[in-house]
Design a binder for these strands. Structure first.
Lengths: 343, 343
DNA sequence: TTGTAGGCGTTATCAG
DNA sequence: CTGATAACGCCTACAA
């Protein structure tokens, strides 16, 4: 059995409560006994038992991380590790640990969250996504359990603390940039339509076109759920258009998808950026390594995670904290996949 | 406050201990009271408190996950999310949760592990790597704390349960395959030399050459720690060789690195596979999407994770379980980056 | 400034 | 088959 507070107490000739106070660095303990107790802890190799502490405190110092139902797809995207690093950093600074909700389908994940929450395993939860309809979100809201979301809530925007990019503006910027290069036929390839980010980006795209006086075309807007493969499918669809109507530029909602696009274009002999410009999102590591290197909107994924864990911890430690909307900046990183339109 | 076992007990007119037994599905409880208690639980919306249970049981049903010191690099590699999925699946099957050790440098991670372990937060630990010298490994070993390693232990191979590929054989197979295509000048680009996997793969490479009667050349063996950039550096080094001495085939220890290689080769106008064949490791998603698609040794990353959490749980639940070496198969997936030598 | 005692929510032992 | 009762290790009034 491990060495406990009582062992330390005996060894230092004090009461257990005194040891407890020394651990908490309670100012009402004399420096002398503090020294004595600390020496005893050192000597015996004492480490506090988190579980016991959690039970007494009703607080675990653990944050739960929830990924969207399709973990397989989500995990594959470099977005995940990067946001995780950010979350990890923010959590570590405040001495919180991270726990993952496991489970492959939505049902399993939902149950995992309920267990985590009701079981008192975590003090708060980070939702790493924002979906249009979300049982988990509803559940947490109803229980008034501390949580933050990465992304923009579909409903209750003012009542949910969330960390997000301004995806509307970012996509507007992206589209504007392509327009400014002289492109007039700009298509949009988005991801899963159940994700709020997809919706936001589509709106930004539409808005940019509208402002530029370019009519919106249904056949220029595609949605694909699976990233790499989706990119391929999208290209095939666009290639069905008559040559003169094919877009000369693409806004792609995700770098991975853009990679799929790039690949398929290469197969069918369309050259990027000569025949077609591509601007995608996320600016993950591989976007730099593709051929040609992808121009991409950097959404500061690390920051998204970092801010998320920090604000969650703030909520946990101060439940009266008002709901917050934290916007992380974005920036277009220009590489070789975007070029002036030949017109 | 949450509803506890006592509330259920009162509601059902039984003792708390009876409720506890119902939860554990103790056979000595009559079906009638079981029904009654379950109805009460349902009615009150009872969920067991894991923390209290953990304290009473001295077991948390949580596995700790430890990444190597350089989390930044490690997280970026698609290896990580995939192995995580495997771990997650294995853990979920047995109702275990996963907790990550956070911290950016080695020191922080070491402390994180100590806290986790001594603090009783986890029942066991998975090391997601194998390094040549490793304080964490030593610490866990000395405390006789349940853990498994993904990879081959540098020391104490027979005293540490681990899940690994036969990396020696895999690299031998890989090299043999290139030799069988008629290549005689085959170079090896490995990763961080502090990782055991790098060492094993190098040995396999050497062995294949030896068996084929091809002398080993120092300047054909390179090591790079950073994956994508490393690939670039490696190419530069090889290009310094006189034309007639340049390798015609490359064994690259990681797909990401191979991507860097591919990219740099493209820049300097060397064509793959016409001028140079490339065979890499891991077979992650992007290896299929590169240009040309990479031939790669599939090491079944998901399985590595899956087997790891399963065997760890077995160790936890049965401490007398003998140490095990679990070998996951590998398989060369041939794509377009490898071709017959022109001789 | 320090000690005592009760409680956090479960489980397990021992009676009955 | 079921009910008290004492842990598990720590925290925190309340006392001294």
């Amino acid at each position: 059995m491990s060495v406990t507070i009582k062992d330390v107490a005996k060894f230092a000739n004090v009461a257990p409560s005194t040891v407890s106070r020394v651990i908490a660095n309670n100012p009402r303990i004399s420096d002398k006994t503090k020294e004595k107790v600390r020496a005893a802890m050192e000597e015996l190799g004492y480490h506090p038992n988190f579980i016991a502490r959690s039970l007494a405190n009703q607080s675990t110092q653990v944050l739960g991380l929830v990924t969207p139902g399709s973990s397989d797809v989500f995990f594959q995207n470099p977005f995940f590790p990067t946001v995780l690093r950010g979350l990890s950093e923010g959590a570590h600074e405040k001495q919180y640990a991270l726990q993952l909700v496991t489970g492959k389908d939505e049902e399993a994940i939902y149950n995992g969250v309920v267990q985590m929450v009701q079981g008192g395993r975590v003090d708060g939860v980070v939702l790493l996504y924002s979906k249009v309809e979300d049982r988990i979100l509803m559940y947490l809201r109803e229980r008034k359990f501390p949580f933050v979301m990465i992304g923009k809530p579909f409903k209750f925007v003012d009542e949910i603390t969330h960390v997000d990019n301004d995806n509307f503006q970012a996509t507007k910027d992206a589209t504007d940039y392509l327009l400014s290069l002289g492109h007039e036929r700009v298509a949009f390839i988005g991801g899963d339509v159940n994700l709020v980010v997809t919706v936001e980006r589509l709106l930004g795209y539409e808005n940019a076109l509208e402002k530029a006086g370019i009519p919106y075309r249904d056949d220029y807007v595609l949605h694909e759920s699976f990233l790499l493969e989706g990119g391929q499918d999208a290209v095939c669809e666009l290639m069905e258009l008559p040559l003169s109507e094919r877009p000369t530029a693409l806004v792609v909602a995700d770098d991975l998808m853009a990679l799929g696009v790039l690949n398929t274009l290469n197969k069918v002999g369309i050259s990027v950026p000569d025949d077609l410009s591509i601007l995608s999102f996320n600016n993950v590591l591989i976007s730099e390594m593709s051929r040609p290197p992808l121009s991409s909107v950097d959404i500061k994924i690390f920051d998204l995670g970092y801010q998320a864990s920090r604000s969650l911890i703030k909520r946990i430690e101060n439940p009266d904290e008002p709901y917050q909307r934290i916007i992380v900046s974005h920036e277009i990183v220009k590489r070789s996949s975007t070029e002036q339109s030949l017109k």
